[in-house]
Amino acid sequence: MKSVFGKITQEACIVSIISIVFGLLVNHFSPAGIALVGSWDKTEGVISANERNGVVVHEREIQNVDAVKKIYDQGNTLFLDARISEQYEEGHIHGSISLPVRQFDELIDTLFEKYPSSTPIITYCTGRECRDSHELAQLLLDAGYENVKVFSDGYPAWEKKEYPIE
């Protein structure tokens, strides 16, 4: 009986080694591979697994709600809401425009017609567990917009501060 359990444990160990080796190899060579340790500390900004093709760039983030409000008050920055339209309809930063990441391709031309590539833009979504604001920022930069920032804390923090919403 003891040898049977030994044999099963041995099989499990071999399977484990094969799985770990393949996991490391595939992750290393895959374009979608991730770092061995991710950025899961929300105090550092929007969380991410640190993907090789990842879109989260902490340098683009504005992490202070009041700093975002100061930019908002200057009135020359376009705020883009990366959440789905239903969430936008429920409430959004006053004056912001809805541009859900999944609808980017169909809406980008209209945006370009109204706002030139030099327009300063801030994207936002639901906070530091949401990557849509970063995805949208990357898409906008790829499309030609030059000055795009991300509001890390997004709509919930803005609403909590009782800043203008509609």
């Binding site: 094969i18 799985s19 770990i20 490391l24 992750n27 770092a35 061995l36 899961w40 640190n50």
Partner: peptide
């Protein structure tokens, strides 16, 4: 978290 995400799918696949 990342190590679990890298290894668990291969455990599932090979098993």
């Amino acid at each position: 978290i990342n190590l679990i995400a890298i290894f668990v799918p291969f455990f599932e696949f090979f098993c």
